[in-house]
Design a protein around this nucleic acid. Structure first.
Lengths: 193, 193
DNA sequence: TCAATTTGTGAATTTCAGTTCACTTTTTTT
DNA sequence: AAAAAAAGTGAACTGAAATTCACAAATTGA
């Protein structure tokens, strides 16, 4: 029984994620999500207090996963520039593998509560890059610089290149490896690595 | 009479902009805008077919103005790196002078029709930077690179670095000149200038 | 087994800003 | 000056989706 409860919760989260991957947050109405999870809307509200909180959990789960991967890269015992390049490339590669979801998480218009969560997530990403940058600056590998601003720039650079106007729609036919490389090069040169 | 009509239209646009600068698109409800312009909502609808189209015009007007300034810089007869740095710094400086408006225009969640306009605007910005980049690449000042990707990265870098400090959550009163310089340096190095 | 509690239901309610429209006031035309 | 046209009004309408809730079904435990 207890198991079923946890199961339901999980199914709701999964269904939401699926629906978002399919048509963005826009298409993930409570009724549609509930139906996809095989439950009624009323039941969904037994598990989540509001649509916004459901969305926030879906977002933060995905981001936590991502942060885990990036943190592992940031902690490797290699040159800072290599870690930076690897982290950027890793993120971009995964985003390109699931562009709809990436767009929804990064750039789709959402209501303020979810947007607030998104901002917190961006900050988390920024922190990972800041860590790498500071390490590189300390070791003399990178020139002294404002690592807060630079980290924000890095996050902005690859997200825009991914989901921006010049990014996805026109670009998805193009060589992904080349895009990854272009972004990596851009970010690496930008910090003087 | 004809004059009054044009005047009214102008007043509506101004009132909208003012309201957006004040509380974002969120707070720029039709009724509030109409009241601020000294008109009724019904009258507003004699001048604009929908709220979205009104917002789009407010946005594109501001962006057209901005593009004009950036284009002038892009066309100057100096080194590409200097033009690039000047364009970035110019944009950032103005955004920091009116952070609320900048946030609304750049990052605030808006409905899809306005978001589409925003994407077109970002593309315009990207094109200006692409022009500078290509010129620099042709002249040998910058190394060969994917100018589409790099332009997107530049736009993303400074917008993110702006929205971080600008965003409603972190109302940071940091040294502006330093932030401008950090972003400029980042972008310049990134393209190998 | 029979209450008590928890979980599930989905139609009805709520909300709320954008939009409309029947009407009034102002301007133009004849 | 009267009729026609245009502009102005704001209360009422609308629609769409989130949320609720009175009730049903299932589970627990005594």
């Amino acid at each position: 029984m207890e198991e079923r409860l946890a199961d339901n919760r999980e199914r709701i989260l999964l269904a939401t994620r699926q629906r978002v991957a399919d048509g963005g947050f826009r298409e993930a109405q409570v009724s549609a999500v509930a139906a996809a999870a095989g439950l009624s809307t009323g039941t969904l509200y037994r598990y989540f207090p509001s649509k916004a909180e459901l969305f926030v959990e879906v977002l933060t789960r995905a981001v936590d996963q991502e942060i885990l991967i990036l943190s592992e890269i940031a902690g490797r015992d290699v040159a800072a520039s290599e870690r930076l390049g690897a982290a950027v490339a890793s993120f971009v590669r995964r985003a390109l593998a699931g562009p709809n979801l990436a767009y929804a998480f990064i750039a789709e218009p959402v209501d303020p509560e979810v947007e607030a969560a998104r901002i917190r997530c961006r900050k988390q990403f920024g922190d990972v890059f800041k860590t790498i940058l500071n390490a590189g600056i300390d070791s003399g590998e990178f020139p002294a610089q404002d690592s807060d601003a630079a980290a924000a720039c890095i996050v902005g650079a690859f997200t825009e290149a991914l989901v921006g106007p010049i990014g996805p729609s026109t670009r998805n036919t193009r060589d992904k490896a080349r895009l990854i490389e272009a972004i990596r090069t851009f970010c690496l040169r930008a910090v003087g690595g």
